[in-house]
């Protein structure tokens, strides 16, 4: 019962071949959605997975411009530089960007917070469903990956959601070969995950190979944090230090970038993508285990959120 986690001495080589195959699969999926869905949208947060997805969409359409608009559900609790990056990328890739705010759902009363500083991350689902209804999107492309979380390992690449946005894990369509069934009855829509089969390492290797720009938060920088258990909590206006906690300034980076209230950095000195790849191959913690405050609540936290319409 006392197995130790293994040291990853056998570093995977960045094999061009496996990245080519993963890329080809993603381009195929993106083109199927472009060809078969009436009004698809690409969910774009400015995080690394959606950055990769946007770049893949560019490659899927080239030499046409990207045929999807971008949709960001803004919790209002994002880092300014991520928002600036988001706007810059939308312009660079010549994409229309729709932003819908959780703040507006709160004002309307469709999102009710228990307290002012409650994390708004899970509430994104409500605002997302409102945006889907407003525009009439029939497909939402997302950058989720199966290796992120156990519930995601069971999700299809093309995943049907009902009018409440619900994911029914026991009632999924079988998905065979590369024959994706995108058809849905009116009111339902599909969530499509073209990089389902990529791991965190694949994503970084691809970012390196394709020279994809990312927000600076992904690279090591000096930041004020407090330590809560083994988690480093960034000190921000939303996540202030509690009385008696010691604020330290350390060199750190974010492995996932999302809502401020639920994303934590890791100690790191990695300043380049190559440094991050080296750290990732040696890292003993999963991406979400190390950095997500929302998935640590319970073993089934992600599944529960997904059933409620979370992406």
């Amino acid at each position: 019962m006392t197995l130790q986690s293994k040291d990853l001495s056998n570093l995977p080589h960045p094999s061009a071949d496996h990245l080519d195959l993963l890329e080809a699969e993603a381009l195929f999926i993106l083109r199927e959605v472009a060809a078969e869905c009436r009004l698809p949208v690409l969910l774009y947060s400015g995080g690394k997975d959606s950055a990769v997805l946007l770049h893949l969409a560019y490659k899927a359409f080239h030499p046409e411009r990207i045929g999807f608009a971008l949709l960001h559900i803004d919790t209002g609790h994002n880092y300014d530089e991520v928002i600036a990056y988001r706007d810059r990328m939308a312009e660079r890739y010549d994409c229309q960007l729709h932003v819908r705010n959780v703040e507006d759902s709160i004002r309307k009363g469709s999102v009710r917070l228990r307290h002012q500083l409650e994390s708004r991350n899970a509430h994104q689902s409500v605002t997302l469903m409102e945006a889907i209804a407003e525009f009439g999107f029939d497909a939402c492309l997302g950058g989720a990956r199966r290796d992120e979380e156990k519930a995601r390992a069971k999700e299809r690449i093309v995943s049907v959601r009902d009018e409440f946005g619900q994911w029914e894990p026991k009632n999924q369509r079988p998905e065979l070969w590369s024959l994706y069934n995108t058809r849905v009855v009116p009111g339902n829509h599909v969530r499509v995950f073209p990089i389902s089969n990529w791991t965190e390492l694949d994503v970084w290797q691809y970012i390196q190979r394709e020279d994809i720009e990312l927000p600076g938060l992904y690279f090591s920088h000096l930041r004020d944090i407090v330590r809560r258990g083994d988690i480093l909590v960034p000190v921000t206006h939303l996540t202030p230090a509690n009385h008696g906690e010691t604020v330290e300034t350390i060199s750190c980076r974010f492995r996932t970038v999302g809502d401020i209230s639920c994303t934590a950095p890791v100690a790191s000195t990695a300043t380049t993508v190559a440094d991050i790849i080296a750290e990732t191959t040696q890292c003993l913690l999963t991406e979400r285990g190390a950095t997500r405050l929302d998935d640590r609540a319970s073993d089934g936290a992600m599944e529960q959120r997904k059933k409620e319409g979370y992406f």
């Binding site: 995601r152 069971k154 999924q172 089969n197 089934g300 599944e303």
Partner: peptide, 22 residues
């Protein structure tokens, strides 16, 4: 990975796993 699977000790659906070596 699913709550029902862990509760009932059964596997419900196909899951995909990833690993790599050198």
């Amino acid at each position: 990975g699913l709550i029902a699977e862990r509760e009932q000790g059964i596997t419900i659906d196909v899951a995909y796993r990833y690993f790599s070596t050198a």
